[in-house]
Structures are given as C-alpha cells and as structure tokens.
C-alpha cells in the first residue's frame, strides 16, 4: 500500500565502483552459497531416514538413462580421434601409435570431460528445471510443511547419484570410444589390430584410467550441485526456471573445463611422483 519514492540515479563512478566491487563479491557469495548447500546435503546424507529409493531413482535418471547418449558420443569421439590420429601418425609412418593416442586421450581427458558435459546437458539441466518448477509451484514449501527437510529429500540423493554415476558413465564412454577408435583405425584405415591393441595397452596405465575416473567423480558432484542449486533457489516464475536451467548448463560446463585443467595439473604432479 505504501508507495516508495524511486531512488535517485547513481553517479557513473559509483556505478563503476559497484560493478568492480560487486563482481568478486558476487563470485565469493556464489561459491559460499554452493558450499553451504553442499555442506547441508552432506550433513543430511548421514542422518536418517536414509533415502535409498530416491538415490536409486536418481541413479537411474542420471546414469542408466544416459547410457545410450554417452555410448553414442563415446563411439564417435573415439572414432574421430583414431581417424585424425591415423592421418597424423601416417606422416611419420607411425600409425600403430594411434592406440596410444586414443587410450591416453580418452582415459585422461576426453572421457571424463565429454561424459560430464553430456550429463550436464541431459541431467543438470533437467534437475534445474524440475527443482525450479517445484520451487515456483510451492512443492518445495509443501515438502517442508510436511516436516521433511527438502535438502535431504531432493538435493542429497541427486548429489550422491551424480558423484557415483559420472565415473561409471565415463567407463562406458571410454569403452565405446575405444571400440569406435578400433572401427575407424583398424576396420576402415587398415591399421594392424595387434599393434593397435599393443600400443593401447602398453602406454595406457591404470593410473591414467584412475585419473579420469577421479576427475569424473569431481565433475559429477560439481554439475549436480550447480543444477540443484540453480533449481532449488529459482524464482520469478517460468522465466526464472528458464534462467535457472540456462545458468545450470553454462556454469556447470565452464566449471568442468576449468576444473579439468587444475585437477589435471594436480593429478599429474601427484601421480608422476
């Protein structure tokens, strides 16, 4: 009922100062808010009631239902790496090393990164949309009203499922990628199959596979956290849900690529000792 007078326009220098100070402050606030949600979800994970059925449902949504798309992208990613590898190595008559290039590239980098980008596109966006819709239609308030903690009910199962399923899907990506690479290099480009597998096995260590799976685990946790956060705190009706979904995909994708570099750096330093 009270009509509030509009604030006078700010001086350009004040606006610039707001922007300069606001940008890092916003970043720090965002990190803090995500960390808080992660902490709450982790705290609720160890308190009863344990929501195994919800965890299985989310594992099915994030993991099982993503297998076809992961297998398809894995197959063609492996095939194109092998194809380009054969042409590059053929210049120095070393096509047999295409197996090495394929194994190392897939297990260390492309496997976890591509897999988690695909999960982001499919599952993180879905989570943001679903939780955002639940927020604006007061379904999250309804959960609270029935004396159920919404973080435990909605966020914890998703975070656990994302963290568990991302490495498993990465293994699916790696296997179908190697199969795709085999088809491109051996069946189409006539690389010797024995040499293909020999160089693949000889140069690709278990630590390379472990490195990729560890990255996938971190990426899986990150993308589900961002997807849940954006949806859980969505506001502003249908438009707000759309914005939350877009943010979930963009922030998750950028974080996966940034984290990939830093994790790669750390893991190479640790594992090479």
């Amino acid at each position: 009922m009270t009509t509030q007078a509009e604030a006078p326009p700010k001086h350009p220098i004040v606006r610039l100062a707001d922007f300069v100070v606001g940008l890092p402050m916003g970043f720090v606030r965002g990190v803090g808010q995500h960390a808080r949600l992660l902490f709450q979800a982790a705290a609720w994970a160890v308190r009863p009631p344990y929501r195994v059925r919800l965890l299985i449902e989310q594992a099915e949504f994030i993991g099982v239902e993503s297998v076809p798309i992961i297998a398809l992208t894995g197959f063609f990613s492996g095939a194109v790496i092998a194809l380009q590898g054969v042409y590059a190595f053929r210049l120095v008559q070393a096509e047999r090393f295409v197996g090495t290039a394929l194994g190392l590239t897939l297990t260390r980098e492309l496997g976890p990164v591509f897999t988690c980008l695909m999960i982001t596109a499919r599952a993180a966006s879905g989570m943001a949309t679903e939780l955002g819709s639940m927020r604006i239609t007061e379904q999250i308030d309804a959960i609270t009203a029935f004396a159920v903690n919404p973080v435990q009910y909605l966020v914890t199962p998703r975070l656990l499922a994302g963290t568990i399923m991302a490495p498993l899907l990465t293994m699916v990506f790696n296997l179908t990628g190697i199969f795709g690479g085999y088809m491109a290099a051996v069946v189409i480009e006539n690389v010797d199959p024995a040499q293909f597998f020999y160089t693949l096995r000889w140069y690709t260590d278990p630590t390379d596979v472990f490195q990729g799976l560890f990255k996938a685990m971190v990426f899986g946790l990150t993308l589900t956290l961002v997807g849940c956060f954006q949806g859980f705190f969505a506001s502003g009706g249908a438009k707000g849900v759309g914005i939350a979904t877009t943010r979930a995909v963009v922030i998750s994708s950028v974080l996966i690529l940034c984290l990939d570099y830093f994790l790669g750096d750390i893991l190479l330093a640790v594992l090479s000792k």
């Binding site: 679903e130 819709s133 639940m134 239609t137 007061e138 379904q139 308030d141 309804a142 609270t144 009203a145 029935f146 004396a147 159920v148 903690n149």
Partner: peptide, 20 residues
C-alpha cells in the same frame, strides 16, 4: 520446527501437489 509442523496441515493456493 519439524515436530511443531506435524500439528499443522497446509493447503496451498494452487494445491502444490507433487506432480511426479
């Protein structure tokens, strides 16, 4: 609060039924 909330029932404006 969860113990107190069990005393209450809330019917939301647009029902807020879980659509899944």
């Amino acid at each position: 609060l969860n113990e107190i909330r069990k005393k209450f029932g809330l019917v939301f404006q647009y029902a807020a039924l879980f659509d899944s």
